[in-house]
Protein backbone atom coordinates (compact mmCIF):
# COMPACT_ATOMS: atom_id res chain seq x y z
CA UNK A 1 0.00 0.00 0.00
CA UNK A 2 1.40 3.43 -0.99
CA UNK A 3 1.19 6.71 0.88
CA UNK A 4 -1.37 9.15 -0.45
CA UNK A 5 1.13 11.98 -0.38
CA UNK A 6 4.88 11.54 -0.22
CA UNK A 7 7.12 14.59 -0.34
CA UNK A 8 10.84 14.15 0.19
CA UNK A 9 13.35 16.94 0.55
CA UNK A 10 11.59 19.41 -1.70
CA UNK A 11 13.26 22.68 -2.67
CA UNK A 12 11.77 25.46 -4.75
CA UNK A 13 12.72 29.05 -5.59
CA UNK A 14 10.63 31.57 -7.52
CA UNK A 15 12.04 33.22 -10.65
CA UNK A 16 12.85 36.33 -8.61
CA UNK A 17 15.14 34.19 -6.44
CA UNK A 18 12.92 33.98 -3.36
CA UNK A 19 13.41 30.57 -1.73
CA UNK A 20 9.89 29.38 -1.00
CA UNK A 21 10.59 25.77 -0.04
CA UNK A 22 13.80 24.67 1.65
CA UNK A 23 13.82 20.95 2.16
CA UNK A 24 10.23 19.97 2.88
CA UNK A 25 9.35 16.34 3.66
CA UNK A 26 5.81 15.19 4.38
CA UNK A 27 4.06 11.81 4.29
CA UNK A 28 0.32 11.38 4.52
CA UNK A 29 -1.50 8.02 4.78
CA UNK A 30 -4.66 7.18 2.85
CA UNK A 31 -7.78 8.70 4.44
CA UNK A 32 -5.72 10.73 6.86
CA UNK A 33 -6.80 14.34 7.33
CA UNK A 34 -3.99 16.78 7.97
CA UNK A 35 -4.00 20.52 8.66
CA UNK A 36 -1.21 22.72 7.30
CA UNK A 37 -0.73 25.93 9.24
CA UNK A 38 1.82 28.73 9.32
CA UNK A 39 2.12 32.45 8.74
CA UNK A 40 1.55 34.08 5.35
CA UNK A 41 4.55 33.53 3.11
CA UNK A 42 5.58 30.34 4.92
CA UNK A 43 5.34 28.35 1.68
CA UNK A 44 2.02 26.57 2.26
CA UNK A 45 0.48 27.55 -1.07
CA UNK A 46 3.74 26.84 -2.88
CA UNK A 47 3.81 23.35 -1.40
CA UNK A 48 0.20 22.77 -2.38
CA UNK A 49 0.85 23.79 -5.99
CA UNK A 50 3.61 21.17 -6.13
CA UNK A 51 1.26 18.32 -5.23
CA UNK A 52 -0.45 18.79 -8.56
CA UNK A 53 2.60 19.54 -10.66
CA UNK A 54 1.65 23.17 -11.30
CA UNK A 55 4.99 24.10 -9.84
CA UNK A 56 7.83 21.64 -10.15
CA UNK A 57 10.75 21.97 -7.75
CA UNK A 58 13.78 19.92 -6.80
CA UNK A 59 13.00 16.82 -4.77
CA UNK A 60 10.76 13.79 -4.91
CA UNK A 61 6.96 13.91 -4.80
CA UNK A 62 4.65 10.94 -5.18
CA UNK A 63 0.90 11.26 -5.10
CA UNK A 64 -1.21 8.11 -4.83
CA UNK A 65 1.90 6.16 -5.76
CA UNK A 66 2.61 8.18 -8.90
CA UNK A 67 5.73 10.31 -9.13
CA UNK A 68 4.85 13.90 -9.98
CA UNK A 69 6.89 14.40 -13.14
CA UNK A 70 6.09 16.02 -16.47
CA UNK A 71 5.05 12.80 -18.23
CA UNK A 72 2.61 11.92 -15.42
CA UNK A 73 0.95 15.31 -15.03
CA UNK A 74 -2.39 14.33 -16.56
CA UNK A 75 -2.78 11.30 -14.31
CA UNK A 76 -1.56 13.18 -11.25
CA UNK A 77 -4.08 15.93 -11.79
CA UNK A 78 -6.89 13.42 -12.02
CA UNK A 79 -5.84 11.98 -8.64
CA UNK A 80 -5.30 15.20 -6.73
CA UNK A 81 -8.20 17.58 -6.36
CA UNK A 82 -6.91 21.07 -5.72
CA UNK A 83 -9.42 23.57 -4.32
CA UNK A 84 -8.09 27.12 -4.60
CA UNK A 85 -8.61 29.79 -1.99
CA UNK A 86 -10.75 32.06 -4.14
CA UNK A 87 -13.59 30.04 -5.69
CA UNK A 88 -13.96 32.71 -8.38
CA UNK A 89 -10.65 31.53 -9.84
CA UNK A 90 -12.10 28.08 -10.21
CA UNK A 91 -15.56 28.89 -11.54
CA UNK A 92 -15.15 30.10 -15.10
CA UNK A 93 -18.21 28.58 -16.75
CA UNK A 94 -21.60 30.26 -17.00
CA UNK A 95 -23.43 27.56 -15.01
CA UNK A 96 -22.64 25.36 -12.04
CA UNK A 97 -23.21 22.26 -14.15
CA UNK A 98 -20.61 23.21 -16.75
CA UNK A 99 -18.02 24.02 -14.11
CA UNK A 100 -18.46 20.70 -12.33
CA UNK A 101 -18.40 18.91 -15.70
CA UNK A 102 -15.09 20.50 -16.75
CA UNK A 103 -12.81 17.81 -15.30
CA UNK A 104 -14.76 14.80 -16.61
CA UNK A 105 -15.23 16.44 -20.02
CA UNK A 106 -11.53 17.21 -20.21
CA UNK A 107 -10.80 13.57 -19.46
CA UNK A 108 -12.99 12.63 -22.41
CA UNK A 109 -15.47 10.53 -20.41
CA UNK A 110 -18.68 9.46 -22.19
CA UNK A 111 -21.66 11.85 -21.75
CA UNK A 112 -23.75 9.69 -19.36
CA UNK A 113 -20.68 9.10 -17.20
CA UNK A 114 -20.10 12.88 -17.10
CA UNK A 115 -23.73 13.37 -16.08
CA UNK A 116 -23.37 10.80 -13.28
CA UNK A 117 -20.16 12.30 -12.00
CA UNK A 118 -21.68 15.79 -11.88
CA UNK A 119 -24.83 14.68 -10.05
CA UNK A 120 -22.82 12.62 -7.60
CA UNK A 121 -20.40 15.45 -6.86
CA UNK A 122 -23.18 17.99 -6.37
CA UNK A 123 -25.01 15.49 -4.17
CA UNK A 124 -21.92 15.07 -2.02
CA UNK A 125 -21.56 18.80 -1.38
CA UNK A 126 -25.36 19.01 -0.86
CA UNK A 127 -25.89 21.32 -3.78
CA UNK A 128 -27.88 18.98 -6.04
CA UNK A 129 -30.50 21.64 -6.83
CA UNK A 130 -27.94 24.13 -8.04
CA UNK A 131 -26.77 22.56 -11.28
CA UNK A 132 -28.58 25.08 -13.52
CA UNK A 133 -27.66 28.08 -11.39
CA UNK A 134 -25.17 30.74 -12.40
CA UNK A 135 -22.03 30.45 -10.26
CA UNK A 136 -21.49 34.19 -10.12
CA UNK A 137 -24.79 34.72 -8.25
CA UNK A 138 -24.02 32.33 -5.40
CA UNK A 139 -22.80 33.23 -1.92
CA UNK A 140 -19.17 32.69 -0.89
CA UNK A 141 -20.08 29.52 1.01
CA UNK A 142 -22.06 28.14 -1.91
CA UNK A 143 -19.28 28.97 -4.35
CA UNK A 144 -16.81 27.14 -2.13
CA UNK A 145 -18.98 24.02 -2.14
CA UNK A 146 -19.27 24.17 -5.91
CA UNK A 147 -15.50 24.57 -6.17
CA UNK A 148 -15.12 21.41 -4.10
CA UNK A 149 -17.63 19.65 -6.35
CA UNK A 150 -15.61 20.65 -9.42
CA UNK A 151 -12.75 18.51 -8.16
CA UNK A 152 -14.84 15.72 -6.60
CA UNK A 153 -16.31 15.06 -10.06
CA UNK A 154 -12.84 13.88 -11.07
CA UNK A 155 -12.98 11.22 -8.32
CA UNK A 156 -9.64 12.23 -6.85
CA UNK A 157 -7.77 10.15 -4.30
CA UNK A 158 -6.52 13.19 -2.43
CA UNK A 159 -8.27 16.47 -1.71
CA UNK A 160 -6.11 19.53 -1.12
CA UNK A 161 -7.74 22.75 0.05
CA UNK A 162 -6.16 26.19 0.35
CA UNK A 163 -7.70 28.24 3.20
CA UNK A 164 -11.23 26.92 2.72
CA UNK A 165 -12.91 28.93 5.47
CA UNK A 166 -11.38 32.32 4.59
CA UNK A 167 -13.99 35.06 4.33
CA UNK A 168 -16.95 32.89 5.34
CA UNK A 169 -19.71 33.77 7.77
CA UNK A 170 -20.13 31.43 10.76
CA UNK A 171 -22.99 29.46 9.23
CA UNK A 172 -21.21 28.83 5.94
CA UNK A 173 -18.08 27.91 7.87
CA UNK A 174 -19.95 25.47 10.06
CA UNK A 175 -21.54 23.68 7.15
CA UNK A 176 -18.20 23.52 5.32
CA UNK A 177 -16.54 21.97 8.39
CA UNK A 178 -19.31 19.38 8.55
CA UNK A 179 -18.86 18.64 4.89
CA UNK A 180 -15.10 18.17 5.24
CA UNK A 181 -15.62 15.88 8.22
CA UNK A 182 -17.97 13.66 6.25
CA UNK A 183 -15.84 13.30 3.13
CA UNK A 184 -14.14 9.88 3.25
CA UNK A 185 -11.01 10.94 1.45
CA UNK A 186 -7.36 11.86 2.14
CA UNK A 187 -7.18 15.54 2.89
CA UNK A 188 -4.51 18.22 3.28
CA UNK A 189 -5.95 21.57 4.31
CA UNK A 190 -3.94 24.76 4.51
CA UNK A 191 -5.59 27.20 6.90
CA UNK A 192 -5.36 29.99 9.47
CA UNK A 193 -8.52 28.78 11.19
CA UNK A 194 -7.08 27.25 14.37
CA UNK A 195 -10.50 26.46 15.78
CA UNK A 196 -11.25 24.34 12.76
CA UNK A 197 -7.86 22.65 13.07
CA UNK A 198 -8.54 21.69 16.65
CA UNK A 199 -12.03 20.47 15.86
CA UNK A 200 -11.40 18.57 12.65
CA UNK A 201 -7.82 17.40 12.31
CA UNK A 202 -6.00 14.89 14.44
CA UNK A 203 -2.70 15.75 12.85
CA UNK A 204 -1.26 19.15 12.12
CA UNK A 205 1.86 20.41 10.36
CA UNK A 206 3.39 23.84 10.96
CA UNK A 207 5.37 25.49 8.20
CA UNK A 208 7.50 28.59 8.52
CA UNK A 209 10.06 30.11 6.20
CA UNK A 210 9.88 27.29 3.66
CA UNK A 211 10.40 24.50 6.20
CA UNK A 212 8.25 22.16 8.24
CA UNK A 213 8.88 23.12 11.86
CA UNK A 214 6.40 20.82 13.57
CA UNK A 215 4.43 17.76 12.55
CA UNK A 216 2.38 15.75 15.02
CA UNK A 217 -0.80 15.27 16.97
CA UNK A 218 -2.89 18.40 17.05
CA UNK A 219 -3.70 17.87 20.69
CA UNK A 220 -0.01 17.91 21.63
CA UNK A 221 1.07 20.78 19.38
CA UNK A 222 -1.81 22.99 20.44
CA UNK A 223 -0.60 22.74 24.04
CA UNK A 224 2.87 24.01 23.12
CA UNK A 225 2.14 27.70 23.24
CA UNK A 226 5.79 28.68 22.88
CA UNK A 227 6.04 26.80 19.60
CA UNK A 228 2.84 28.37 18.27
CA UNK A 229 3.92 31.88 19.23
CA UNK A 230 7.36 31.38 17.72
CA UNK A 231 5.69 30.89 14.35
CA UNK A 232 3.16 33.67 14.51
CA UNK A 233 0.26 31.42 15.50
CA UNK A 234 -2.18 31.65 18.36
CA UNK A 235 -3.62 29.00 20.57
CA UNK A 236 -7.37 28.89 19.89
Amino acid sequence: MHHSIEVDDLYFAYPDGRKALQGVSLHIEPCEKVALVGPNGAGKSTLILHLNGILIGKGLICVAGLPVIKSNLGKVRARVGLVFQNPDDQLFSPTVYEDVAYGPLYQGLPPDEVQNRVSEALETVRMADYSRRVSHHLSVGEKKRIAIATVLSMKPEVLVLDEPTAGMDPRARRSLINLLRDLPITMLVSTHDMLMVRELFERMVIMDDGRIVADGQTEVIMKDEALLNAHGLEKP
Binding site: V76, L109, V151
Partner: peptide, 10 residues
Protein backbone atom coordinates in the same frame (compact mmCIF):
# COMPACT_ATOMS: atom_id res chain seq x y z
CA UNK B 1 -3.65 27.37 -12.61
CA UNK B 2 -7.12 26.39 -11.55
CA UNK B 3 -7.81 25.17 -15.06
CA UNK B 4 -4.53 23.26 -15.24
CA UNK B 5 -5.25 21.66 -11.85
CA UNK B 6 -8.43 20.11 -13.21
CA UNK B 7 -7.05 19.14 -16.60
CA UNK B 8 -6.43 15.52 -15.72
CA UNK B 9 -6.24 12.25 -17.54
CA UNK B 10 -8.49 9.30 -16.77
Amino acid sequence: RARAARSGQA
